[in-house]
Every structure is written in structure tokens, then in C-alpha cells.
Design a protein around this nucleic acid. Sequence first.
DNA 1: GTGGATGCAAACTCTTTGCACCTTG
DNA 2: CAAGGTGCAAAGAGTTTGCATCCAC
Lengths: 140, 140
Amino acid sequence: MERNTRQRTAIRQAIETAGRPLLPAEVLEAAKREVPGLSLATVYRGLKALVEDGLLATVSLPSEVTRYEVAGHQHHHHFQCLGCQRVFDVHACPGDLGRLAPPGFSVESHDLTLYGRCGDCSPKKPTLDAKSKKVVPIRC
Amino acid sequence: MERNTRQRTAIRQAIETAGRPLLPAEVLEAAKREVPGLSLATVYRGLKALVEDGLLATVSLPSEVTRYEVAGHQHHHHFQCLGCQRVFDVHACPGDLGRLAPPGFSVESHDLTLYGRCGDCSPKKPTLDAKSKKVVPIRC
DNA sequence: GTGGATGCAAACTCTTTGCACCTTG
DNA sequence: CAAGGTGCAAAGAGTTTGCATCCAC
């Protein structure tokens, strides 16, 4: 049912190689090195198919466009660097948060996002312009 | 510098009356009862101006369009009902989460979203179709 | 009276979809 | 060879903006 096309392989490899959640545009940029003619529509269709197949998982953060990462990680959260805007996995969790909800509310799940500086963007080093939404692929 | 127009007054009152974060479309719907000819563009401009004036605050949740609430609350988080999709304030916080970050990462802030059922949408009662993105203003 | 605010429509960004052509199994 | 995948362009949803008109101060 799911075909192995060069395009989908390139999409999956782009995300596996990155090791962190990627934006569709980042996936396109990386996968284009394998399949130059790749179109953004195919990236979207491929990402959706791979998520439905359980190979990828979506990562959505407040005010941010959906990113994609390899599936299979257990419950975890994310960290977004205020310097380079990149997103990283956080394999830790504050635990049960049901007690925080108001009376009468039942909690089934939660999302947590940490913000700060990644190892490459310590406060001492120059940071990228947070206003340019462009995600710079190089180390910052 | 900031003028008191009927439109902006209606926008502010819509959010104050709701007592919970509202979507721009919800603000338009509510404010239209005061100013029938109100346009969505004016709602967006009004919301932005009121945020810049410090009267409103933005609320953004994963995979969700930005909502707006009255400013002035101290640090808090949000709860989204899986039944009616409405968002409520949670005046509680798990506390310092810096310890969750990987080594080399510094945490400056965090966002937490709880998901579950609000008092009106207990698991026993019928729930709204989660797939219809339409936010129903009535109690569910 | 004048500058900020409004309404409308067009523009923009991100994502999805229709359709003809191509490719995998 | 047939079903599914791809590329392109057009269509959608949400948001912003240009511009002529309007109105609060």
C-alpha cells in the first residue's frame, strides 16, 4: 500500500539524519539534495503518509508551524532555542499534572515546551535574528 | 495615541466578558453584536493594538491559532477541553523546570498546556465533533 | 480639521487538492 | 499494466496590508 519512492526515502532520511524535529521547508531543502526536482507538495504528502504509517510523528509548539520527527520515542517534550529557533527533544517530564487543573476538570494529557539557549547558542555567543523566521541550517 | 472607537471598545468587552482566551473569529462574532458592520481586519488590528498597549495578552497553544485574553494575570498556563476545544486559564504551575533540559542547555521559560475535559464536557455527556474546527459558542 | 481608525479587497504564508503524467510492484 | 505517487498550479484558511473614506479628539 505504501510505495518506496525515491522521494519518500529522501524525506525520511532527511528527518532521520537531522535527529531533531524539522519544518516541512527544512525537509524539502535537505531532501532536495537527494531528489533535486522534489516539490513542496510531495513533501507534505510524504510527511502525512509517513505519519499515518507510524514512521514519523508531528511536533507542534505554540505559535510554530508543525514540525516532524521520527516516531517511536516514548512520552517526551521539546526545547526551543531562543537563539536559533531550532527544536530539540527533552527526554524528561515533570510527571503527573492532573492536580494543576481547576476543580471539575479532568486532565488526560499535557504538552510542555521549554525555551532557552541550546549548547551552540549560549548567551555569550552571537545569536541569530529572532525576527527573521528563516531557520538557518548551519550551527550558530 | 490610542483612540477610543466603538470598535475597539467592543473588541475589548468581548474578551473581558468571555473570561477565557478567544479566537479572532470568536471576538468578531461577539463584538458584532455591538458593532454590526465590524470587519475581521479591524478585529485583527484592534487585537494587535490592545496587546501593544498591554491590555490584552496572546495565548498560543500547539497546533492552534492564536487566542487573546485580558492581560495582567501573572504567570499561568492553559487547559484545552478535548470536547468543546475551548481554552481556560490554569493558575497553577509545576515550578522550576530547568532541571529537565539536557546538559549545556539553559532554560529561560516554559509553556504548559493541559488537555482533558472541562466541567461542561465530562466523559458522560455528549461531546462536540473534534474534527469540525468550528468552535461552538454555546455550552456543550 | 487632521491624523488615526475603519472597511473592503487584494496580497501573503502555509497547506491542501485537482489533474495530467510518471513509476513502482 | 494498474494503482499509487509526483509536479505544477490553483484553491483554501488565517492573517496582514494598501487605500480611500470616516470619525474621534
